[in-house]
Structures are given as C-alpha cells and as structure tokens.
Simulated assay, not measured.
Amino acid sequence: MAGVVKALGRWLTEAVPRGRIAAFRTLVYLFVVGDLLIFTPWVRDHATVPGALYQPLFVGRLLPLPTPTPALVSVVFWALLVLALLAATGRAPRALGWSVFLLYFEWMIIAMSYGKVDHDRFGLLVALAVLPTAGRARHGDPTRTEAGGWALRVTQIAVVCTYFLAAWAKLRFGGVEWLTGSVLARAIIRRGTELADVIAQVPGLLIAAQFGIMAFEILSPVVFLLNERWRNRAVAFFYSFHVVTFATITISFAPHLVAMASFLSLERIRPIVWVRRGLRRTDGRKRTAGPAPDQLADPAGGAP
C-alpha cells in the first residue's frame, strides 16, 4: 500500500520545465481577459437584473456571496481585467494569481446563478486555483519543478473529469436511452450549421455519434495510461472532437480547451525568444548589406 501511495505521489508531482508553467500561466490569464471581453461580456448585464432572479449556486449560498449590484459587477469586471493582464506577465504569481482566481470565481457565480450552468469552465477554474502554487517561472526556463508539475497534473485531472462526469450525468439523468435518443438531432435543430444538416441526412449517423461520444467520455481517463507519444495523439483527438462540435452545433468549449493545454509541451512555444531572434537576424542582415549609398561619402566631405 505504501508503494502505491509513493507512486501516486510521484505521478501527481512529476516535475515539468518551469518554461511550461510560464507559458501555461500566460495563456490562462490572457484567456481570462479574452473571456471578459469576448465570451462572457453578457455577465455585466446581470448588474441590472432584479435581485429576486438571482438564485446563487450552492457555493454562493454556502459562503454566502452578495447579490450582484451594478457596483459589484463593475468592480469585479475592471479589477479582474487589470489583474489578469498583470498576472499574465508572471510577476507576483501568488498575490496576483490568488486575486485573479477569487475574482473570476465570483464572476462565474454571477454568470451561472440565473438558471444556466456551463460545465466547460471547471478545468479553467481549477487551473486558476492551482497556478498560484507553482511559484515563479520564466519563459524558456528548462529547470524542472515538482510544484509546477502538481499544478498541471491537477488541471489535467479536472479536464478528464469534465469528460467522464459528463458521461455519468448523461446516464444518470437520461439513462441508457440517451444513446438511442434524439439528443444530437435536437441540438442540430436548435443551433446546427450547414455541415450538421448534411450529416443529419445520413441514416443512423447521429445515433452512432452518440454512442461514440459516450465511449469517448467514459474512456477519457485512459489518456493517463499512455506514453507521451500516444498521449499527445489522444489530446489531439480531444481537440479535434471540439473542432467538429463547434463546426456542427457551434459549441466552442473555449475555457476547457485552454485548460487542456496543460497536457502540451508549451515550453517549446517561446514568442519572446522568437522576437529577439528575429530582431537579431534583421540587425545581422543590415550589417551584412553594408552602409547605404548616401553613407559612402568621402570622409573629407567630398563625393566618392
């Protein structure tokens, strides 16, 4: 038993390059900014909704959190926007990280306490909760960190739980009849694209797709048993699944896709280094090209 516990501990804290943490941190915090401006700006409209319509989620009742007001929503929005931009730079990872998590948590409570709860933000919320524990990290730093590895692993577990628990919810509330029902057909009628209309005309394809979705979600934890090569392929399949989902029924799962980047070797993406290299190459070309014609004047002031 002790051996199993030690093995689990090593797996949970498998060290990763600090550069990967820095890249993931920047991606997550920049997405928070984009989320406020692009994906969930409608949350600000809740500031003017009558308080009687506010039905807080369980955690909102447990704490308890205040009923949204124009002042509260504005403070959360602007504070979160500024602090997320600062956090994306990697400075003060704990102070800024915890602040962004708490503010975004409140933003989600305000967003989801009026009758609709999206499950695509679970992984992102977990990422925001654990990133402050990873400590400082610089882009391109190859030094390995167990604290950062734990933060990424916990985020990965949240991503996989999103799939697995979605399958459980389907079976819990829809039963096995979900597999042979008209779930996808209804989704296509409500928000389907032209591609979805073409697919819907193929006999039996939507039912087969529902069986495929259930199998994919139930088997998603297998990704942790794969070696790096096959794990990357599995994650690529996860992303392709969401590309098809968006192309057919326009559901993006953008927050989930950002959290799923915790599986990727993001330390290989080094935009700052690329910019510096580009500037060096440009400077090198200028030096190789030599001085411009108007710089070839005679030192005494005459023409050459």
Rank of each mutant, 00 (worst) to 15 (best):
residue 104 Y to Q: 00
residue 39 F to Y: 15
residue 67 T to Q: 07
residue 33 V to R: 00
residue 72 L to A: 06
residue 88 A to H: 02
residue 105 F to L: 06
residue 95 A to I: 12
residue 94 R to I: 13
residue 45 D to M: 14
residue 95 A to C: 09
residue 94 R to C: 03
residue 66 P to N: 08
residue 46 H to I: 13
residue 86 L to Y: 11
residue 99 S to W: 11
residue 34 G to R: 15
residue 88 A to S: 00
residue 92 A to Y: 00
residue 66 P to L: 11
residue 34 G to E: 13
residue 36 L to I: 07
residue 93 P to G: 01
residue 44 R to P: 08
residue 33 V to E: 06
residue 81 L to C: 02
residue 22 A to N: 05
residue 38 I to V: 14
residue 67 T to G: 03
residue 51 G to L: 01
residue 35 D to V: 08
residue 91 R to L: 11
residue 85 L to F: 06
residue 105 F to P: 05
residue 91 R to G: 13
residue 61 R to D: 11
residue 87 A to W: 03
residue 102 L to H: 01
residue 85 L to S: 04
residue 87 A to Q: 08
residue 94 R to Y: 07
residue 81 L to D: 02
residue 26 T to R: 15
residue 71 A to C: 01
residue 107 W to K: 09
residue 99 S to N: 12
residue 79 A to S: 14
residue 39 F to H: 13
residue 78 W to R: 11
residue 30 L to E: 03
residue 71 A to Q: 09
residue 67 T to H: 12
residue 39 F to A: 14
residue 50 P to R: 12
residue 85 L to D: 07
residue 25 R to G: 08
residue 107 W to Q: 11
residue 42 W to Y: 11
residue 56 P to R: 05
residue 98 W to P: 09
residue 60 G to Y: 02
residue 65 L to S: 12
residue 82 V to I: 10
residue 60 G to P: 02
